[in-house]
């Protein structure tokens, strides 16, 4: 465990909690892509099957269980409890355009052709693109509430810190996970445009982020 990893995990947790609290307190999930949240729940569900096969540490188990529970809680709030506020008309990203290539790629490029390894690879590739319905929704409506942008900021920060973590681990532990690193870098690139808007519009300006 290095400082980048820990800070990355904390950022990830903060992002998820920000989103959950925003929905819970405002009793509304307006502006939130339910599709992205379902994809994240799918990411955690397929990746953390290793809870049953490998024991790494207590920290590892606790965090995985927490991420799973929080992601399902978020999906529950959006599609069940506060579904009246769910903006399905603007959450129109075609998820199959992500799922089909991701499923195909995870069969082609993996560490072992076994169900668990293919599902693990699937979760890595899917995580890289799972935020796209949310970014698409913001582009479509042309605006995002500041709290939604804080959520995206912490999610992007988590990815950036994981890259620093991989650089550290490569030098210190000789560890290099090609699948995770390549898709992690791709994923981080998706956030760059958003980071720019976040700094120039949200931090320096008003509450909402509106696109030009």
């Amino acid at each position: 465990m290095n400082i980048f990893r820990l800070a990355g995990d904390v950022s990830h947790l903060v992002a998820i909690i920000i989103l959950l609290l925003k929905i819970w307190r405002s009793k509304s999930c307006a502006g939130i892509s339910g599709k992205s949240q379902v994809l994240f729940a799918l990411v955690f569900s397929t990746r953390y099957l290793d809870l049953f096969t490998v024991f790494v540490s207590v920290y590892n188990v606790v965090m995985k269980v927490v991420f799973l529970a929080l992601s399902y809680a978020t999906v529950y709030l959006i599609y069940m409890r506060f579904r009246n506020s769910y903006d399905s008309e603007n959450d129109t990203f075609r998820v199959e355009f992500l799922l089909v290539p991701v499923i195909g790629l995870s069969f082609l490029e993996n560490y072992a052709f076994t169900p668990l390894e293919i599902l693990w690879t699937f979760s890595i590739f899917l995580e890289a693109v799972a935020i796209m319905p949310q970014l698409f929704m913001i582009t479509k409506t042309g605006e995002a509430e500041s709290i939604t942008t804080h959520y995206l900021f912490f999610l992007g920060l988590y990815r950036a810190l994981y890259i620093a973590n991989w650089v550290w681990r490569y030098h210190m532990e000789g560890f290099f996970d090609q699948i995770a690193v390549v898709s992690g870098v791709v994923q981080t690139i998706f956030y760059c445009d958003f980071f720019y808007l976040y700094v120039t519009r949200v931090l320096r300006g008003k509450g909402k982020m509106s696109l030009p």
């Binding site: 490998v54 590892n60 560890f175 996970d177």
Partner: peptide, 10 residues
Amino acid sequence: NQELLRHDEL
């Protein structure tokens, strides 16, 4: 022990 390190990450 690359396998364990890989499953260590979240």
